[in-house]
Design a protein around this nucleic acid. Structure first.
Lengths: 328, 328
DNA sequence: TTGAAAGCGCTACCAC
DNA sequence: GTGGTAGCGCTTTCAA
């Protein structure tokens, strides 16, 4: 690996000059520029990012903190963030907080120690101390906070839509999954659905659930044991919806005739389920991209039109809900 | 952010001493150690990893290159790698090569420029130049190479098993999906299945397929159009299996009575499909962990028992294959 | 327009 | 056992 010294020697100039043409800063003669650039090419010189970072106190790295990389929703977010960052010549250190605050703190530490220029975090603890007094900006993704800029899906309306669509299609005894109590996004969609349910003439049960794979299956089994008469489920995310769909078919219910199911997120696999899952779509990829853009704006001191960006969600009608009569 | 100087001043010693107790190198008096450690705590000092890295030419970062973060198999690998690294106090820069060689090269560049201590790569281009002449070790994951250390599933036997189990359960006209031709792992499992099919009295068709979401669905549709009489499908991975399962049910085939389907990978969602997918399980999480361990051994110059670690695969019997008669 | 030199925070050598 | 100091590769004054 050649250094700036080698380039300077090769081009017959000083390292200062090389640095200047490298960064397009200060003056430098066209001819000198040319010679330097030739030397760079010849030696295949790439600046040492670590040395740069040490001096500038800024790397080209952005920290991305995910709560659970196994939930397909998050890789989708990550892709959006990554693609946008890549276009800006930036790179990602991805940390998987695994829903554990200690891990989260550790990763933030690492991000700091590596001079990241910013953090995008999709974890559940936006209001906790590790995010305070940071010397670089933090953007929350898929989380609502007032303390920080953020990008998130319109959970309240999503929940409302889910309830509206399932009621409209004739479910009368609905199970409403609540999702983790500490998760604002889960609670938003829950509240939306709750409000809609309260305003209509249907019975419903509220059931606590987690967002993880392992819990989803167990929850599905107990759900049907405890409430065998339900004819509609509003799930807290697609993972739970998949588990419920699966269990419903296993015990011989017909979908969507006996039971309608509606998910949340629209992860890529939802349309590969059978029957394909009706769900509330969050534009995960775009949310990731927006968060990256927002972070870049903050870093570059560009004016912010809005600090908290709410993304619209849409009902995706597939086949776990019944067709609605045309003349509703 | 306090520096080593601040700590030295606080403890009334030199920076050299602080560095020594920090790294447990060279001599230092117990009392001095204590004082230094107190100063560290008091100032909440964390060493600047960038400065360390500049001097040592080694960071605490490991590059992880994934071909497609959206395929749930890879996050699973990533988790294994991450958990092992985390226990070693190391962190990951994750790059998503997106099956594009340019992106791959760019990420390797970034890894270099950030002084990673090693790379774990799950991409398809192990034999290409970017991996040559690197100053740090590379371990390939989910890829067979002789040029580098690697950890991979036993694809040949996996394919063989898949064919064996489906034939044993009575399929007579089988579609064998081939997976991407350039992907060694895909070809291994293909060859295994092929050999097994050739040694038995069944008809079969070989069909090319990709590993991606988007292609899987189209492929499934044409598959049944072109070969309406098949009664068994050996898929190249679980994603394609899901697409086929889905399409088969859509056109009214009964699973597993009319058609048996067997997948490959055992991604977390496979058991949530309906019917739950029979598949060949690759121990993705463990493979990730093994790859991380292997890399660490190489970095620490520990003796290697084996440079290429093949992990066993197992048949997971779920419900897209028929029950076998007890007295086979 | 260019170059010499200081210094980012750290480690390791060498002298005491 | 401990401290002074050079230097990792880079950027940025400041003088020339």
């Amino acid at each position: 690996m050649s250094t700036i010294r080698d380039v300077a020697k090769e081009a017959g100039v000083s390292v200062a000059t090389v640095s200047r043409v490298l960064n397009n800063k200060g003056y430098s003669h066209e001819d000198t520029k040319k010679r330097v650039n030739e030397a760079i090419k010849k030696l295949k010189y790439k600046p040492n990012e670590v040395a740069r970072s040490l001096f500038n106190k800024k790397s080209r790295l952005v920290g991305l903190l995910l709560p659970d990389i196994r939930n397909p929703f998050f890789p989708e977010l990550a892709r959006g963030v990554e693609d946008e960052m890549q276009e800006q010549g930036l790179h990602l250190i991805i940390g998987n907080a695994d829903e554990k605050p200690e891990k989260e703190i550790e990763y933030i530490q690492t991000f700091k120690q590596n001079n990241v220029i910013g953090i995008i975090s999709a974890t559940n603890h936006a209001e906790t101390t590790p995010y305070k007094n940071l010397s670089f900006p933090v953007v929350f993704l898929d989380r609502t906070t007032n303390s920080h800029p953020s990008v998130y899906g319109d959970g309240y309306n999503g929940g409302k839509k889910a309830a509206y669509e399932i009621i409209r299609r004739g479910s009368k005894r609905i199970a409403l999954l609540r999702g983790p109590a500490e998760l604002m996004t889960a609670q938003d969609r829950f509240k939306g659905a709750l409000d809609e349910l309260c305003n209509s003439n249907v019975d419903f049960h509220v059931i606590s659930s987690s967002f993880s794979f392992d819990d989803a299956e167990k929850m599905a089994i107990t759900l049907f044991e405890n409430y065998p008469d339900i004819d509609g489920v509003i799930a807290s995310n697609d993972l739970s919806a998949a588990a419920i769909l699966h269990e419903a078919l296993r015990i011989g219910r017909s979908i969507p005739n006996d039971i309608q199911i509606i998910g949340y997120d629209d992860i890529p696999l939802s349309r590969l389920l059978f029957p394909p899952l009706s769900t509330i779509r969050q534009p995960a990829y775009d949310m990731g991209r927006e968060a990256a853009k927002l972070l870049m704006k903050i870093i570059n001191n560009k004016p912010l039109l809005q600090k908290n960006i709410q993304m619209p969600v849409t009902f995706i009608e597939r086949q776990t809900t019944r067709k609605v009569e045309e003349n509703d």
